[in-house]
């Protein structure tokens, strides 16, 4: 579904950034999300380490 087709001109939501079809696909792509899972955990570990 094209998210941009839902834009209602001059409504507050019309100024919001909308994800493209590719972005939506990548958010649920299993392989890519496994990679992101590792990367986000590394980033969070750094934050935790810096905060303790």
């Amino acid at each position: 579904m094209n998210k941009e087709s839902q834009i209602k001109p001059y409504e507050p939501s019309s100024g919001a950034a909308l994800p493209t079809r590719f972005t939506l696909y990548m958010r649920q792509n299993f392989i890519y999300q496994v990679f992101r899972f590792i990367m986000i955990n590394i980033k969070m570990t750094i934050i935790i380490w810096r905060s303790h």
Binding site: R27, R36, F37, I47
Partner: peptide, 14 residues
């Protein structure tokens, strides 16, 4: 450098 955010399935697993 240390402030970030993203949406996705990986977030649900975490």
């Amino acid at each position: 450098k240390y402030t970030f955010g993203e949406v996705g399935l990986a977030g649900h697993w975490i």
